[in-house]
Structures are given as structure tokens and as C-alpha cells.
């Protein structure tokens, strides 16, 4: 599959886990960012089809990064992937422009399903 996926998480473990899940399911074009600011830069550079975004990160949090990316590209497809799934947090993310919200710990299938769903929406 040629879709590029951007993974944004401050922990190398989570970036690696998500990358392994995506690679195992045919998504070979994966780029990474370790905070929101890097994610904005990587988005501008690679124009990924889907972004996986953590919330609590140093330098710039995920919600702020979603807002900046959506300003840059109102069609950006962003999935929040966070350990924090409080109602207000989910609402903030959706209002910022996130399309889905995955709470950690997650099953690999949940991540792949969400990415495929957004890619399907892109193709439609």
C-alpha cells in the first residue's frame, strides 16, 4: 500500500509498536514524530494520508498539533491515540478536527481498522 502514515508519540516504544502494527498490515510508508511540533513539520513535508497522534507530549501537545495541521490542511485525517480518554478530552480532539479516538492500551486490530476506515473515506 502506498499510503503514508505519520505516527506521533513521545515514547519510542509506542512509535515502534504502532510502526510494527502498520508494517505487519501492509502499510510500509511510515514516518515518525516525537512531539506535536515535529508532527506539524513532518505533515508539511510528507503530506501523510493518515496521522496517529498522542495527546500528552513535551514541546507541543497533540490537540495543539491537530489544530495546526488542520489549519494547514482542512482535509487532514487524524486519529488520536492516547491513554487519556476523558469525555472532555475526546470532545476537544473532535472539535480540533480528529476523526477517531483510540484509547491505550489498544488492540492492533483497532488501529488497523481505524486507519483503513479513514483511507477508505479518502478513496471514496
Amino acid at each position: 500500500m502506498s499510503a503514508t502514515i505519520l505516527i506521533t508519540d513521545d515514547t519510542v516504544f509506542m512509535r515502534t509498536s504502532l510502526k510494527n502494527i502498520l508494517n505487519a498490515n501492509g502499510f510500509d510508508n511510515v514516518v515518525e514524530a516525537s512531539n506535536g511540533q515535529e508532527a506539524v513539520g513532518q505533515y508539511a513535508l510528507h503530506k501523510p494520508s493518515v496521522v496517529l497522534m498522542d495527546i500528552t507530549m513535551p514541546v507541543m501537545d497533540g490537540i495543539s498539533a491537530v489544530k495546526m495541521i488542520r489549519q494547514m490542511d482542512p482535509q487532514a485525517k487524524i486519529i488520536m491515540c492516547s491513554a487519556m480518554g476523558q469525555r472532555n478530552m475526546v470532545m476537544d480532539a473532535v472539535q480540533a478536527g480528529a476523526k477517531d479516538f483510540i484509547v491505550k492500551p489498544f488492540q492492533a486490530d483497532r488501529v488497523v481498522e481505524s486507519v483503513r476506515k479513514l483511507l477508505g473515506a479518502e478513496a471514496a
Partner: peptide, 17 residues
């Protein structure tokens, strides 16, 4: 270390919920 930090992050995040 990153994995153990993520474990703490996941527990704390779910506690916040």
C-alpha cells in the same frame, strides 16, 4: 525504559478517565 514509561502513562491516563 520507554515501554515501562508507557505502562505508567496508560495506567495514569485510564485513571484520569
Amino acid at each position: 525504559a520507554s515501554a515501562i514509561a508507557e505502562l505508567a502513562n496508560m495506567i495514569s491516563g485510564n485513571v484520569l478517565m
